[in-house]
Design a protein around this nucleic acid. Structure first.
Lengths: 146, 146
DNA sequence: TCTATTATGGATGTCAAGGTCCGCTTGTCG
DNA sequence: CGACAAGCGGACCTTGACATCCATAATAGA
């Protein structure tokens, strides 16, 4: 449904959002989110280039969110690392000027629905503060202590 | 979003549904749907094993639908060749007895929505008869003649 | 029965995603 | 300045999806 890379990116972003701007190193993020550190480094590079995250080199460096969690949607993160593609013209026809055939119309509407769903969830919505009264940590991994 | 293989399977199924039970060879299906013939053969095998399609060997053989188009949904086809996976437990936690964390709850609800959308479109819905008044053929490929 | 036709199944090839490694650059701090 | 701590970027490996090819089994028709 969404790629492994997008999953990793989301875990990292949610973790960063929970750390109130204190830079977190790739190692730290990797441990908490259970993402292979070497690969996470690549993913974070991508998020950095897209401007979702700030990178700070050197001692006490690391990554921090570059966008307020309330203004960052799950869709933003997914699109940054592994874009969902709407079906704009039928994969067969050269007839791109026409509307989609019934099949691809349905398929595209499913994609549209996913866009809408993910686009209406901000990262802030996923944080503990937004879920008071529930004993959940923002990431499943953090729940294993209980 | 959905795999190439699922896309191929859907094209083939829609084409077969439009042919009212006359068996179509892999070659015929491949030409109309613009799917690599060799690969389509594999895909059709899968559909056959899942019982969505009947295979007939020998002269005048080929494939035909094994399920009435009105009783076959787009989701059925997708699940047969390349199953959509709901997120049942968080990919991190060993805490599978708990409810999903907020992030994976949202992601799963997106998958659920796709299931619902594709599950409510039957193959019959995609056929020309169901779309009278519109000049569309069931597959985009067939539209290139105009 | 023989032959042409068609699906079947296995071996193999190709390519991009996922993942690892390591040397380089940028930065902090003493 | 030197030493260390981080991210950066390129080379490389692995795996699975997509795709090809061919020998074989099943079937219809002469």
């Amino acid at each position: 449904m969404i790629s492994q890379t997008a999953e990793y990116a989301l875990r990292a972003i949610v973790f960063l959002a929970d750390q109130s701007d204190a830079p977190q190193t790739t190692q730290q993020i990797a441990e908490v989110t259970r993402v292979p550190a070497g690969y996470l480094a690549k993913v974070m590079q991508g998020l950095s280039r897209c401007g979702l995250v700030r990178a700070q080199r050197g001692l006490h460096g690391g990554f921090s969110l570059a966008v307020p969690p309330k203004e960052l949607t799950v869709l933003d993160v997914v699109q940054a690392v592994d874009p969902l593609r709407r079906i704009e013209h039928c994969p067969l026809g050269i007839s791109s000027h026409r509307s989609l055939c019934p099949l691809h119309g349905r398929l595209d509407s499913a994609v549209a629905l996913v866009e809408k769903t993910l686009g209406s969830s901000t990262i802030a919505d996923l944080l503990p503060d937004a879920n008071r009264g529930r004993p959940l940590k923002p990431l499943c991994s953090l729940a294993q202590e209980g």
